[in-house]
Simulated assay, not measured.
Amino acid sequence: MAVQRATELRLLLVAMAVAAVTARGAAGGGAAKVPAIFVFGDSTVDVGNNNYLAGISARADFPHNGVDFPGGEPTGRFSNGLIGVDFIAAAMGFTRSPPPYLSLIAMDANSSGEVMSNMMMAAASAMKGASFASGGSGVLDSTGTTISMTKQIEYFSDLRDQISTILSAEKASTLLSKSIFLISAGGNDAFEFFSQNKSPDSTAIQEFCEAFISTYDSHVKVRDPNYDPVPSSFKMLIGQ
């Protein structure tokens, strides 16, 4: 009974969160230029996901990170202040950057029902976007030990499903198809390759580049923008 009541309370909070998001959108008079921003990548766009990963060294939740950030506290950004995604979000009319996805689902769950309702709350909170980026990751899943690009896309897929449950599949598809999908990754792949290959020959470099491009292509499936401007793998995820 207690679990059922807790779940009902969380679902009520989901409804309240959706209403609050809708009200903010109406009050803002449509100031934001896009519905949401979803971010994938490495430390160049990580706004705090690594704070929620245990046993890793790729962290930025300590001074002097954040010393020039509003409030002067470390946020998990690998920077003394704002990073590029903060400026992009501001330019798009948002009052803040998309929050780290793991901050939205972090909880001490005691039942699968609580986990599911918490994911729905995360979806309600992410109507204006979320960041899945993780410092130390790369395009190649073999790069780093944090949240791989494949896992980041899986997280987005889970979030998409919950948004569809809240809004309906059609409305969720419309929201996501008009949103920005920002990817900033690749540097760590190059760093790791050259750290393991001090003097690579042209064949090794060519093989690395081909593997990198092929993997990136499998993640986003970029097509002719004049014909189909939406990356097809994300198109599959957003339901088009």
Rank of each mutant, 00 (worst) to 15 (best):
H219S: 02
V139W: 00
F193V: 07
T203V: 12
E154P: 07
A190S: 10
S218N: 09
R160T: 13
V115M: 11
L182H: 03
Q206V: 09
S148R: 05
S168Q: 04
S164I: 00
I163C: 00
F212M: 10
M127P: 10
M116S: 13
E170D: 09
M120D: 10
R223N: 13
I163D: 01
T145S: 15
Y155Q: 02
S177V: 08
I205M: 10
F191D: 07
T150Q: 07
S218Y: 03
S157Q: 15
I153R: 12
E170T: 03
S173C: 13
I147T: 01
A211W: 07
F132E: 04
S142M: 14
S168T: 03
S142W: 05
S112G: 13
K221E: 10
C209K: 08
G136H: 12
G144C: 00
L159R: 07
S125V: 10
D201H: 06
G136A: 08
L182S: 08
A130I: 14
G187F: 04
S137R: 01
T150L: 04
D158M: 15
L175R: 10
E207R: 11
L159H: 04
A130R: 10
L140T: 03
S177M: 12
S202G: 08
V220P: 05
M119N: 10
A185M: 06
K198N: 09
S199M: 04
A122T: 08
K151Y: 09
L167S: 01
G136P: 09
S142N: 14
P200D: 02
K151S: 10
A124F: 07
E207S: 11
S134L: 07
G138L: 03
A126S: 14
E207T: 13
G113C: 03
S173M: 05
Q196F: 02
H219Y: 04
S179I: 10
A133L: 13
T203I: 12
L140I: 02
G144L: 01
F212R: 09
G186C: 04
I213F: 12
I213W: 06
G187D: 02
L167K: 01
L175I: 11
F194E: 03
V139D: 00
H219M: 00
G136Q: 03
I180V: 14
S142G: 15
I213Q: 09
D217I: 09
S164Y: 01
G186P: 02
E192W: 03
M120W: 08
K128Y: 13
A204F: 07
S157Y: 12
G186L: 02
S218Q: 09
A130D: 12
R223S: 15
Y155E: 00
